[in-house]
Design a protein around this nucleic acid. Structure first.
Lengths: 195, 195
DNA sequence: ACCGTAACACTAACCGTTAGCTTTTAAAAA
DNA sequence: TTTTTAAAAGCTAACGGTTAGTGTTACGGT
């Protein structure tokens, strides 16, 4: 694995980055809605079809590197210290992710996302995909035969925490507050059923 | 109020229903993606622009009467019996809504929704809107000056319960299981903060 | 040197959606 | 009644994201 990447793969990666960088720059300069795919393609000096061969949609141009978001979430579960409890590990990771969104370098992007219904919708469904991955990771970490309702539920709650904290006035305090609720929910899920 | 509706309003309502009925019928017959707006308009004998003057988007044709979904959720909070606790009231309403989705008359629609990414996305953002309304209703019912993070969080969790239960093998059991977790989360939110 | 194929280009279209403008028609004013 | 108004619907044409179809180029393996 990781063989010396040939010129072909390098050129492909270059083209992809050039498109993504150009798109993000234009979006931030002129506004997401004011920039068309044809503008992006022209400015990146590629054909429109090439843009769509690298990115599934216009919105995907904005969330280019957010594949590692999913990875960081699942990694927080599968790669945590032995015997470290699940929820605090997730709280730390969400806290870090929320801080990253508030950083000066990424804040303008999120302002743009919040201003565009299309981007918000895209981010919402991204979050659900991430929650499903997280649910699978949690089930795996607990040696459950399959992804149970409780796993899926906690994963959704964690994804909600990320979303709600970003919108809150004090994001870090919001993460703490919501995770107190998640912790309680998780303990209730582990209890035997009454009734 | 409720003055005798003039012919104009009746005709408008008729047109709207005709469009929605025609659309749903075609969607179920041929599949959502296989039916274009132009098909719907032709079959309903109206112009394309008329369709969009009644419905904001193609997806909205499918979720026509789901304005009362939002209403039922908030009503479950504001219209509950005096001193009836919040969470059980919500659990009953969600239980009823989930049962309604599983009913024979509506099940094919939800199968279609689950099969179409566009419809799933639309439903997701609808759910977020409903959650925000529910959060406001909860804050109002608790005499809070504004919608707090805890209210928003519980509202999201309730919306998640609806979504997750619909996908679960045993929806009604899933509602009970998730609401045990929500109950615990809510109690934790009402506790004074430690640390 | 040769071939297969991955990357990209170009054209032309499809589809959801909207703008601009005209026609119909119910309702209210004269 | 007649006139006026404005809402509802129609028509045409377009815009912007997306895709299909069809080459063309150039890298990689033989």
């Amino acid at each position: 694995m990781t063989a010396p990447p040939g010129r072909r793969e390098r050129k492909k990666a270059e083209t992809r980055r050039r498109i993504a960088d150009t798109a993000l720059r234009l979006f931030l300069e002129r506004g997401y809605d004011a920039v068309g795919i044809r503008d992006v393609a022209a400015e990146a000096d590629v054909a429109v079809t090439t843009v769509f061969s690298h990115f599934a949609s216009k919105e995907a141009l904005v969330f280019e590197q957010d594949e590692d978001f999913e990875h960081r979430l699942t990694q927080a579960v599968t790669g945590r210290a032995p015997h470290e409890p699940l929820i605090p590990a997730l709280r730390r990771e969400i806290q870090a992710l929320v801080r990253h969104c508030a950083a000066d370098s990424t804040a303008p992007i999120w302002r743009m996302v919040d201003a565009s219904p299309a981007l918000r919708q895209y981010e919402e469904s991204m979050r659900l995909r991430h929650a499903e991955s997280l649910a699978t990771a949690i089930a795996g970490a607990l040696d459950l035969p399959q992804t149970t309702t409780a796993c899926r539920t906690i994963a959704r709650f964690v994804a909600d925490a990320y979303s709600l904290a970003r919108e809150a006035a004090d994001p870090e305090a919001a993460v703490d507050e919501i995770f107190r609720m998640i912790e309680a929910a998780w303990e209730a899920a582990c209890l035997p059923r009454r009734g």
